[in-house]
Write a protein that binds this DNA or RNA. Structure first.
Lengths: 202, 202
DNA sequence: GTCTATACTCTGATAGAC
DNA sequence: GTCTATCAGAGTATAGAC
């Protein structure tokens, strides 16, 4: 990706990617159309294809880098830190991501629902390696009796599920809670309670 | 929907709905094509449209009834039962649904990701009413000190998130776990542990 | 760099033979 | 009930003027 050069090119590329994120995250790869992306970006369709060679290329540009951002908080979980603090702050950071980047979360969810046709490899290698590594850390903490025992990998799944839910199912969450609620603030408190009880050494 | 009459009509309608479920759940409404559905069903495209008047009609037929099936386990949570048993068996039944009907789960997830354009009303009324009602039951149990305190509605969200995750992110779960694992069996144990600790009266 | 025009394919839906 | 043929529109992408 050595595309963007001038300031205007960089700016337009960004505009396009932002519009594409909006559309892809809502309708999935096949459901998204260049017309719609162009419309949201405020550019003409041929102009889109001046900046990116194809629809696929726009989608790929969005996906690449997404997993990295997504996994940064997990990467930062410190084996030498205080177990409960490390896990709680991971949960907190993951929830913040869901709140601040819901479209990225939904883009990822769409890719998973489709069977991860474009991320299979990276998931089976990079993601898997990182999870294995951090699961070993969790296992050690459990063996030392510093947190309660549970399946380390499924514990990580639980954190993903509980935090992403607030981005991916945002409509449902808000519809059920009704007006006058701050879903993410409440979720923060709720999840902290849940994980404190879950992890408290037996 | 008074369409199916003869045996063959009923059978073909079912074949079509099954194929449509396969395609819609993977690609979302707009990403799904009649060609693909016809192909999976082993029928011609015009034949599809002999049984259903339009693409939209097929999708609607799938969605109607979905929420009911999905909420049945919650509906069955008995206010007069033993709180922990009731909640744990709700979790168990929800996980069984995710295991046995992953396509239905993904169809629902797709609808949510799109902003629930076709289920908004039913979510804001039926779903919300049921959750409110069951949240009150949970609240009473908490007030009686029979389960630990937490936000009742978010507790229900947590159950949904943790169980649906295994259907919707199935690819990711299997890729991370690697071969030789039974995700749903492990999840069953893990979630029982998690909720037992979460709900144990303080 | 951006536009209009357009090529070509795919998609939802219909007509009509059998 | 099922098929072939086909239509109108939408979809991705390209050509070429400005």
């Amino acid at each position: 990706m050595t595309r963007p050069q001038s300031r205007i090119q960089l700016k337009n590329s960004q505009t396009i990617l932002d519009a594409a994120l909006e559309v892809f995250s809502q309708h999935g790869y096949r459901g998204a159309t260049l017309d719609q992306i162009a419309d949201v970006a405020g550019l003409s369709k041929p102009n889109l294809l001046y900046y990116f060679p194809s629809k696929e290329a726009i989608h790929t540009a969005l996906l690449s880098g997404l997993l990295d951002t997504w996994l940064d908080p997990l990467r930062d979980m410190d084996p030498d830190g205080e177990p409960l603090d490390e896990i709680l702050s991971y949960v907190r950071r993951k929830l913040d991501l869901a709140r601040d980047f819901p479209r990225e979360s939904r883009l990822f969810a769409n890719e998973m629902l489709q069977g991860a046709p474009r991320m299979r490899t990276v998931i089976e290698t990079d993601l898997r390696d990182l999870v294995d590594q951090k699961a070993r850390v969790l296992q050690i903490w459990m063996d030392q009796g510093r947190i309660a025992r549970s399946h380390p990998v499924h514990l990580i799944f639980s954190i993903w599920a509980l935090t992403q839910h607030y981005a991916d199912f945002d409509v449902q969450v808000r519809a059920v809670l009704g007006p006058g609620h701050d879903p993410f603030a409440e979720a923060g408190d709720h999840l902290e309670t849940l994980f404190r009880r879950m992890l408290f050494p037996a």
